[in-house]
Design a protein around this nucleic acid. Sequence first.
RNA 1: GUGGGCGUAGCUCAGUUGGUUAGAGCGCCAGGUUGUGGUCCUGGAGGCCGGGGGUUCGAGACCCCUCGUCCACCCCA
Length: 416
Amino acid sequence: MPDFKTSPGTRDILAPHSARWRAFQEVFAKTVESAGYNYIIPPMFEDLDVFLRLGEATEVVTKEMYDFHDKGGRHVALRPEQTASVCRAFVEHRPVTPWKVWYSGPNFRYEKPQQGRYRQFDQVGIEALGVDDAFLDAEVIALASMFYSALGLNHVELSINTLGDGGDREAYSNLLAKYFSKHESSLTAESKATLTRNPLRVLDSKREPDQEIIAGAPAIRESISKQSADHFAAVLSALDALNISYKINDRLVRGLDYYRRTTFEFVSTALDAAHTAIGGGGRYDGLVEALGGPATSGIGFALGLDRTLLACDAEGVFAAPQTDVDVFVVDTVDGTHAHDLCHQLRANGFSADRAYDLRSIKAQMKSADRSGARVALIIGSDEVANSTIMLRPMGSGEQYVVSRKDIFNELKKVLK
RNA sequence: GUGGGCGUAGCUCAGUUGGUUAGAGCGCCAGGUUGUGGUCCUGGAGGCCGGGGGUUCGAGACCCCUCGUCCACCCCA
């Protein structure tokens, strides 16, 4: 057994999976950059206070933060998500609005790991600040939907809800608190605990005994302002205009405290594990203000890399891309010919690998096979004497002699 | 944080009611084939049986603790 392993909830992403991750990020970048979103790279840690603004009923902040004191005595925390950082960056740099950015990178939450849930986990996402227009809500959702399609996913469902503005949300929360308190004796112990922290989140309970009471709970739409209701209706009709199907779920309450008005979630119906939510987002109109900036509306989403890739596995789509080299050079003379030729191949736009330690031709051919290269170039004493190279297309069982000076042209033909 | 399953070779896993030097398949290395991989044959390397303590003449197996991992809850991506 090795002396060291990765820390709990972390892991090494090795090939070929690592290539898939990179491809995932590239597909995402292409999708959102087509809509004018610019790449932002916020730091991975911030002053703890930045994240505390996410709200004291947000467990991500209260229970799961990776925080520590640095050598300068600052109390900092690894980011549990990136929306807060983006809003902090907005306040710090005051860019012209609308400010549309996208990000990709790891977040950290101190949780008990299980499938689809890690302590270091990657998300990609977008944030758009400074615009209140319902068309923006629909654009943001449409981009997520486009991205899923680009990956090849077909079994992703969109749930959508509105939580009303800040005042509506609070009024609704109080209403729910009253309702659930009345039925407290029938609730599970877990839900009772949730009730004292954040009544909205009781709606999220998956426990069977709670379901009946949740079903009878008042819906947000009964206590929502006209303005919020109009906004929501506008978002829905903008989605309809793009033929994006959705399910209105008036029990959809998301875990982060800052959500206002439009909230949405993407669920993979191809997954049957506990974690079928592969992405989610919504409006967070008060967050910039909470971070000391001007009142600024904002909306965005975050998609989990792992869970989305699990969904891809379940649907059998988006395989890892090929990263094999074009050519494998076998040198049975002394290794210098492979050394020179590989270098020249790479300089001329071919990818090339070789064997080391002057092993037997058999061993080198085995390495060539394993490398996945489409062509083996073999150099032995005959080839050196005649300034030629033996070119062997792997898998063909055939090979032929090529003059050393013609090798690049010949490879271009063979590899095209 | 709570509950349960599982930790044996690089990987996937056998290992009988506790009984000598712990096995298989795959992978890896070498040879069969002094210039040839992907098939085949032969051989080889590689294990503090997750760690610590205990029971026993004797523990990979049983007990306790601990760490890791998986699953569910919680929470969320």
